[in-house]
Design a protein around this nucleic acid. Structure first.
Lengths: 336, 336
DNA sequence: TTGTAAGCGTTATCAC
DNA sequence: GTGATAACGCTTACAA
């Protein structure tokens, strides 16, 4: 509970000098005073009070990781509230740079703004933002914002994302190259201007390029939980000429595989599947899952780097970073 | 950026009155003043400055979720830094009660204490704490602490955990009842006074109760990542008389299954496996995984309830909550 | 029923 | 080189 005042008293100097030493503004402080102050800081176990700092400086060293729930699918997000290994990477790097991470779920832009002002939040991370009123509100904020996996453009806002289009295109082409023609697409609800839409476009582009007519009936929009995947599988088996399936997430692919198996379908003999993400689960399924790889850790690292640059007032050279994806071949696709 | 002062000015009352109205201390404020103030708050979009509040009240409404890394296995924790669906449940309930959640990784108790004092943190959650010096430091803190999945006792500290012993005992007995005698135990590093040790004891107790000699060679301590699971599987197949396997986590069980499959082993024909947790992955493996179920969501909910009680100054009737576990029968065990 | 004023811990301006 | 002092936004005795 020692304060700057205590340090000042103990060392017989003023608060100003203590503060200056703490902040390394030692240009005009005698070496011996510095020594004394540092010793006192040690002894009294002084720890800065961030609230006080925040109050006076209008900045808080708090970075918010925002989970924007849209009413209809909050349940879903709660299941995997913030892609966790990602969170770990972010917290670590922020901490190493003297920042603090607050997690916050918001539903409306009002809630968000209230939160920001409550704490003088210095910067924000978001994942999966869409081009809607919520984003419009975002774009008026003056603090650094880094979006992850979002396809919305704004001069002041950084983006870290993936080659979603290319990834999905590659997955589809891979199936086509293996002789598949009736290829379905499975994904959680595809929203305009979102990651999943890009992946959907990639799928369509590959079809078109190979003169395969796009068939709306082969697009399955289902949630990612296991029950939905089972239901999706039941639908899938109703269309017996489907031989290939592109899925926008590995967990979903695994769920669908389990569902198909229940219906007596063999993978890849009856249906070939390509996933997306390349999480460790891919090596655990039977058969192992061919998928599109992304480096989630790198995504986190780069997101923080952009954030730190902006916090320091440096405008990053590139505000739009697209990380590569590539196909990892495993056992879930066969040639026909 | 409106402050209490602005409200006061606009409505022609004092800061005190505004503050009183904000905090519902309207006992001695005229209805019409209240009305005026509330309108002004609306109009000026007043949002309380938590730093200022925190500064004056020595409490911050910030709850810390602490990730205690111990040097040797930080890598591992980073992979699943904070059990995510759990985090979601916690953040949600806290938020509904006016609290904020900060995530923080600490390595030493000094780091933790610095963090607490930086922000006047009001309460702490921890998962998987052991009986070590770090815990000793914890127990001297005077803020509410809720431990999750920890077997350390302290009068002021709440615990939310599972029937770990019983769960593991049940898993082992289930294998025994299905005719298995050579039953191995696979787990991440078993530390004294931890969850995994309890599970280990449960395993041993079941063996003993059925007069099966405990064999140290059948205990495999490996990390949970896929590579370690593969390695574990390679070891496992060296001991051909093993017919059953109790694993302390589903992800690990799934990884081992994948490894065994690589070695040409059939599950459950060659080896029967029981997992722990009952995550959705269990329905996706081939065969589906028989496991010990726990309600992770409930665990989060109860943890927050305990926390809120303590924050309100109410000592909870029970400071030690043990949630039930039960076996979920799937396909990974066969009778012999 | 409402207002005054001190103080929380820190920083920053300016003066010495 | 160092020190007063005001200010940040809010709460809370204590007055009125």
């Amino acid at each position: 509970m020692a304060t700057i005042k205590d340090i000042a008293r103990l060392t017989g100097v003023s608060c100003t000098t203590v503060s200056n030493v703490i902040h390394g503004r030692t240009g005009r402080v005698s070496a011996e005073t510095i020594e004394k102050i540092n010793k006192a800081i040690e002894e009294l176990r002084y720890v800065p009070n961030m609230s006080a700092r925040s109050l006076v400086s209008n900045s808080s060293k708090v970075i918010g990781m925002i989970n924007h729930i849209i009413p209809k699918n909050d349940q879903n997000l709660m299941e995997d509230p913030f892609q966790s290994s990602f969170l770990g990477a972010i917290e670590r790097t922020l901490r190493e740079n003297g920042y603090y991470l607050m997690l916050r779920t918001v539903e409306t832009s009002e809630e968000l703004i209230t939160f920001l002002r409550n704490w003088n939040v210095d910067g924000l991370f978001f994942t999966g933002i869409f081009k809607d009123q919520f984003f419009d509100a975002l774009s008026t904020l003056k603090i650094p914002i880094v979006l992850i996996d979002s396809y919305v453009q704004h001069p002041n806002i950084c983006n870290v994302g993936l080659e979603d289009f290319k990834g999905s295109y590659t997955a589809t082409k891979y199936l086509i190259d293996h002789g598949h023609r009736r290829i379905a697409f499975a994904s959680p609800s595809i929203r305009d201007g979102g990651v999943l839409q890009e992946r959907f476009y990639g799928y369509k582009a590959a079809l078109t390029e190979h003169s395969i007519p796009f068939d709306k009936k082969l697009v399955f929009e289902y949630e990612m939980d296991i029950a939905s995947c089972m239901a999706l599988a039941s639908e899938l088996v109703q269309i017996p000429d489907i031989t290939g399936l592109v899925v926008t997430a590995d967990v979903m692919a695994a769920g669908i595989m389990a569902g198909l198996r229940k219906h007596g379908k063999k993978i890849p003999d009856d249906i070939s599947i390509v996933g997306f993400d390349d999480i460790s689960l891919c090596s655990m399924t039977t058969p192992t899952l061919t998928t599109i790889h992304q480096d989630i850790h790198l995504k986190g690292k780069i997101a923080v780097e952009l954030m730190l640059k902006k916090l320091e007032g440096v405008e990053p050279e590139k505000t739009e970073i697209i990380l590569p994806t590539y196909l990892v071949e495993r056992e879930s696709v066969r040639s026909i």
